[in-house]
Amino acid sequence: MTALAYLVLLATAVRAGLGLVAGPGPDDRRRVPVATVTALVVVGVPTLLQLTVVPALLGQLGRDRAAIGDGQVWRLVTSLVVQDGGVAGSVFNLAALAVVGVVAERVWGARRWAVVALASGVLAQLWGLVVQPVGAGNSVAVFGLAASVAAVALRSGDRVSRLFGAASLLVGVALLVAGDIHGGAAVVGAAVAAALLALDRRSRR
Rank of each mutant, 00 (worst) to 15 (best):
G183T: 13
A141K: 01
A117R: 12
N138I: 13
R205S: 14
R65A: 15
L145S: 01
S90D: 03
A16K: 09
V32G: 02
A114T: 14
V73S: 02
L118P: 09
Q72I: 06
V140G: 04
S120E: 06
A22L: 11
S90G: 08
R30Q: 08
V100R: 05
V21E: 13
A96I: 01
A39E: 06
A98Y: 05
A22R: 15
T38Q: 08
A110V: 04
V81M: 04
V82K: 02
A193F: 03
A22F: 11
G44N: 13
A66L: 13
F92L: 11
A3S: 11
V107L: 12
R155F: 06
G17K: 11
V81Y: 04
L7S: 14
R63Y: 08
G135A: 07
P24M: 06
A3P: 13
G17M: 14
L126W: 10
A117F: 14
V102Q: 00
G137K: 03
Q50V: 14
L10D: 09
G86W: 00
V43H: 04
R15T: 13
L169H: 02
T2D: 11
F164V: 06
L20N: 07
R75T: 10
V102T: 09
G144L: 01
L7A: 15
V8L: 15
A117N: 05
V34A: 08
R75Y: 02
A88Q: 04
A95S: 05
A5E: 14
V177N: 14
V45S: 11
V152Q: 03
G17W: 04
V116H: 07
P55F: 00
A13N: 08
A88L: 11
A195P: 09
L123A: 15
V91D: 13
G85K: 03
V134Q: 14
D200R: 11
V142G: 00
V87F: 14
V91G: 04
T38C: 08
A16Q: 08
E105Q: 09
T47G: 05
S156W: 04
S120C: 08
A67Y: 00
A167C: 15
V41S: 07
V14F: 07
S161G: 06
V77G: 04
A174K: 01
V187L: 12
V107E: 07
Q72G: 03
S120P: 09
R202S: 05
V103N: 10
S139D: 12
S161V: 11
A5V: 15
V140H: 00
A16L: 01
A136V: 13
A98S: 01
V122I: 14
N138A: 10
V42S: 07
A185H: 10
D180P: 00
L145E: 00
G89F: 03
A147P: 10
F164M: 14
A5C: 07
A186N: 07
L176V: 10
L169D: 06
A22H: 15
A193I: 03
R155D: 12
L145P: 02
P24N: 05
L9E: 15
G165D: 05
V32T: 12
L197S: 12
V173C: 09
L76S: 07
Q132M: 14
L145D: 01
D28N: 04
A13D: 13
G59V: 12
Q83W: 01
A147H: 08
G184S: 15
G62L: 14
V81R: 10
L61S: 00
V188S: 06
L49H: 15
A56P: 09
L126N: 12
R204T: 08
